[in-house]
């Protein structure tokens, strides 16, 4: 049972719900508090890491803040757009309501991905953008070309997150009883609040290629601070396209085997 789903229902039934009005306010306050505390905490953690004034993995404190800003932005994207939609897929498969979705005359991947938006978590996206802008402007190292590339790379990063999240969600068609596989990725994504070069040895490889966290936050950040590496930028775009098509194919494959298996 997904809490958010019920919350939505309560929203719809607000006329009958005694405390619906209060809910909007509490919900709003809780989400804003959560966004502020999360980014404040991340900045504080970062300041401890940099407290000796040394660079970490070749990044200064101010430069690393761009990464934290991007991380907050992507977390906000996940909470606003991915979680509210994709967390319902496994339940829909288990209870059989997925059949209704597949019967609709509209692309089913689009339908399960874009049904709901948790507007209260937009605060994360705004705070992330703010942090990033502030760090980029005060660094004075940004170039127009770098910023343009950075924006493209943010989009590529979001596609990567969406694709991974969606692929993990699609496994619900087979692993009916495992609801939280996406949490595995979400847990590892925590590494994205640091520049990937801060990680030692083989963990750096893991966060670049096994779980491509580096391409989601570090690579766009490099573009914004004017240190774009053309090879890695192309790599990010390629990975994004590749994962997107894998997700697309995997979903079609899953739906096909689901519809042929169920009578």
């Amino acid at each position: 049972m997904r809490p958010r789903r019920y919350f939505r229902l309560i929203m719809l039934l607000a006329g009958a719900s005694v405390s619906a009005q209060l809910e909007y306010r509490v919900n709003f306050l809780v989400n804003v508090a959560s966004s502020i505390l999360a980014s404040g905490g991340a900045l504080f953690g970062l300041s401890i890491l940099f407290s000796d004034g040394q660079r970490v993995g070749g990044w200064t404190y101010r430069e690393a803040i761009v990464v934290v800003g991007l991380f907050t932005l992507v977390e906000g994207f996940i909470a606003t757009f991915l979680q509210p939609n994709l967390s319902r897929v496994s339940e829909a498969v288990r209870t059989g309501t997925m059949d209704f979705t597949l019967l609709k005359p509209i692309d089913s991947q689009f339908l399960v991905s874009a049904r709901e938006v948790n507007i209260f978590r937009l605060s994360d996206i705004l705070i992330g953008l703010g942090l990033m802008l502030w760090a980029v402007i005060t660094l004075h190292s940004a170039t127009p070309w770098g910023v343009a590339l950075g924006i493209v790379l943010i989009l590529a990063g979001l596609v990567i997150v969406y694709a991974i999240w969606f692929i993990l969600t699609t496994t619900a068609f087979w692993f009916v009883n495992i609801e939280n596989l996406t949490e595995l990725f979400h847990g590892l994504f925590g590494a994205g609040q640091f520049p990937v070069t801060a990680f030692p040895g083989w963990t750096r490889i893991v966060f670049s290629f096994v779980v491509p966290v580096a391409f989601i936050t570090t690579v766009p950040a490099e573009a914004f601070i004017g240190r774009a590496d053309p090879a890695r930028a192309v790599g990010a775009a390629a990975i994004a396209l590749f994962l997107f098509f894998v997700a697309r194919w995997f979903w079609k494959f899953a739906v096909r085997s689901y519809t042929s298996a169920s009578s």
């Binding site: 607000a14 006329g15 719900s17 005694v18 619906a20 009005q21 909007y24 306010r25």
Partner: peptide, 17 residues
């Protein structure tokens, strides 16, 4: 009971906010 009432839709939500 005391029941709070809200008109349907976004507009009602905003008003009762």
């Amino acid at each position: 009971y005391t029941v709070h009432e809200k008109e349907p839709g976004i507009r009602g939500s905003l008003r009762s906010f």
